[in-house]
Amino acid sequence: MANAQTIARKPGRGLLVFKWTLLGPLFGLLLFILPAFLLQLYFSFHSWTIYLGSWWDAEFAGLGVFRDVLTDSRFWWAALRSLIFASLSTLGCFVAGFALAMAMHRPFRGHSLFYAVFILPMLTVPVVIAYTFEMLLFQRGPINGILSTILMTNVNVTWLAQPPIAVFTVIMLEIWNWTPFVFIIMLAGLSSLPPELDEAAQVLGASRWRIFSEVQLPLLRPVIMLALILRFLEAMGEFPKTWALLQGGPGSATETVPVYLFLTTWQYFHISRGAAMSYLVLIFMILIVLLGIRLLRREKQTIDAIHAKPGAGE
C-alpha cells in the first residue's frame, strides 16, 4: 500500500498546509451542510408539523417522535418492501450482470457493439425509464404484444395494476436499469484474473465448472462483494422510477421506505416524523454499510496481499 514514508520530502508546516489544502474544500462543504443535519436532529426530537406555528417554537418531545415511528406499522411494512425490493433487484442485477460478463469476457466479432448496447440502460435517466416502460407495459401495449406473438396465446397481463405483479415490474425495472453497473464491475474482475491459473487447471484436467467454482469464483469474491453492497445500498434509496410509475400504488404494493419518507415529509408535512424516520433509516443503512465495509476491507486486504509485489510499498 502506498505510504507517506515513500516520499522523502521534508515534513513540516508546509506539508501540513498542503494536506489541509487538499482536504479543505471537502471540509468546507461538509461544514456548510452541517446545519441542515443539526436541524434534522432538532426536528427528530421536537414535535412539529407545519400547522403548529413556527418551527423554533416546537415542543420538545424527547424520544416521543422516534417511538411514534417505531410503532407505526406502515413504516415497518415499507421497510419490509424496501428490503424485498433491494434484495431481489440486487440479486437479479448480479445474476444478469455476471452472466453477461461471462458471456462477454472473451472477445468476438461485434463485441464492441454488444458492449455499447449493454451499458445503455445505466446511461438512461431514471424518470425516462419510468415513462418509457409505462408506454411498454399497458395491457394493450408492446410488451404484451410481443409476448403474445412469442407464446402464441393472448397475453393479457396487467403489469401495473396487481400488487405482486407491480412489485415484480418495479424490480425488473431496477434490474434493467442497473445490470450494466454489475456487468462492468464483473467484466473488470474477470479480466483481472491471471490466465495462467485457468490454463494450469485445464492442463490438470479440471472441468469448466470446477475451474469456475473453485478457481475463478474465490478470486472474484471481493469484486462480487463490492457489486452486491453498492447495488443493495443504491436500491434501498431508489425513488424516481417507483414514484413516477406507481406513486406507491396499486394499493400500497410499492410503498417503499423512500416513498413513505417522501409522503411523510412532502405530502403530510410531518417534518418531525420524517426527520426521526430518516435518522432510523440512516442508522439502519450505516449498520449495513459498516457490515459491508468490514467485509470489503477484509477482501481488499486479501487482494492487496495477493498482488503485493516484492519490494513495492513497505
Binding site: 441542515a36 436541524l39 434534522q40 426536528f43 423512500p258 415529509t265 426527520a275 443503512m285 450505516i286
Partner: peptide, 12 residues
C-alpha cells in the same frame, strides 16, 4: 453517498 437525498431534503 449512501444517505438517501430525501433524508435531508426537508431541513435543507
Amino acid at each position: 453517498r449512501m444517505i438517501p437525498p430525501i433524508v435531508v431534503a426537508a431541513p435543507l
